[in-house]
């Protein structure tokens, strides 16, 4: 096992459950899956669920159940965004994996197939997904595919119908908090329940994020004070700044300032969607605006997020949103009497 060479430093990896036994939650599903796998044959799987729900962990457990962990009999693919050659890549990969002979057959616990894991299925282009249909059927005898994705919306129906769909729901707050407590214990980190609770809330039931934040907390802070601010990640800070800018002043000059901040985010590879989602999240948290105004802005955000999906240059849509939102805010300011 490659792991033995180095110790994992990232807690999410270090404390990732390896077997179904260790899997703390979703007991109901695990049992069903376990049964399925242990039967002689099992279908292609499509795991879906929100980020941090445990899809990867789930996959890992499955693999571990079938093979020994980190086997030669499975291969993991994660397609890149906007890759125009993904169709060829995925098909060839599956073909080659399926056609080559496993080196040590006896390790597969009698299962005569290999497994291809494809992460982020929703990022696969339509043509690649379509290409998979035939491949999946053709090499059914030699290999199984486990797909993972956050949402099924971009997955074409034929693929869905060829797989057993498994929804992996996000863990509850309690589960998250409990797991964090366990990890803190394992890492000898003294942490108050209050802090844990806070981190759990911040993580939005995202297990991975929760553990990440816990580790960041452990590295940077020994005291609890000021934890909310310190924990916020770089991009979140910039987005909240943008929101502040937007609310405090409405002018072309200000739009230019905001444009630069958007560029900062975009040039680092933050997606438009992520920006919109966070903007609205922060907007809903802030109480400086009237709820009607907030809803109007949210409506705009939806519209421009949609447009950004249709278009290609995210800055155009972000800016369109900002300008429209400025009008809305200005109007409400004038109505309430403190406008210019």
């Amino acid at each position: 096992m490659m792991e033995s060479e180095f110790e994992d430093n990232i807690w999410t990896e270090k404390h990732r459950p390896a077997t179904f036994k260790d899997l703390a939650y979703n007991q109901k599903y695990t049992k069903a899956i376990k049964r399925l796998i242990n039967s002689q044959d099992f279908p292609h799987l499509l795991l879906y669920g929100p980020p941090g729900a445990g899809k990867r962990t789930f996959t890992r457990c499955i693999l571990n159940e079938i093979f020994v962990l980190y086997s030669n009999y499975h291969i993991e693919l994660s397609p890149t965004n906007n890759d125009s050659h993904d169709r060829i890549m995925v098909n060839n990969m599956i073909k080659e994996t399926a056609e080559s002979q496993p080196l040590k057959r006896e390790k597969t616990k009698g299962k005569d197939f290999k497994i291809v894991v494809i992460h982020d299925l929703n990022l696969l282009s339509r043509s690649a997904q379509a290409g998979l249909r035939r491949t999946m059927e053709k090499y059914m005898s030699e290999c199984r595919i486990i797909f993972q994705c956050e949402s099924l919306s971009r997955v074409i129906d034929p693929l869905k119908s060829r797989c057993a769909l498994v929804r992996v729901p996000a863990p509850t707050y309690d589960t998250v908090a409990e797991r964090m407590k366990d990890i803190a214990k394992m890492e000898n980190l003294s942490i108050s329940t209050k802090t844990i609770d806070m981190i759990a809330r911040r993580s939005k039931r995202n297990m991975r994020k929760a553990i990440m934040l816990l580790q960041i907390y452990s590295v940077n802070f020994t005291s609890i004070s000021d934890i909310g601010k310190a924990l916020s990640l770089g991009y979140e800070q910039i987005i909240s700044e943008i929101l502040k800018d937007l609310i405090s002043e409405q002018s072309a000059t200000r739009v230019k300032v905001i444009r630069n901040k958007f560029y900062q985010l975009i040039s680092k590879g933050i997606s438009t969607e992520c920006i919109f989602v966070n903007l609205i999240r922060f907007l809903m948290q802030s109480d400086s605006l009237d709820s009607n105004v907030r809803y109007e802005i949210t409506k705009l955000a939806c519209e421009y997020d949609f447009r950004s999906k249709l278009g290609a240059r995210s800055i155009f849509h972000l800016e369109g949103f900002i300008c429209q939102a400025m009008v809305v805010i200005k109007k409400s300011k004038i109505q309430s009497g403190y406008g210019v």
């Binding site: 409405q250 002018s251 072309a252 155009f316 800016e319 369109g320 009008v327 004038i334 210019v340």
Partner: peptide, 25 residues
Amino acid sequence: DHGFQVGLNDLKRMANAASYISLGD
């Protein structure tokens, strides 16, 4: 760019322009 004194109409014009640019994309 119209400096600090910005009326609602100026903002509306700007918003319209930005909106069209977004649509254009």
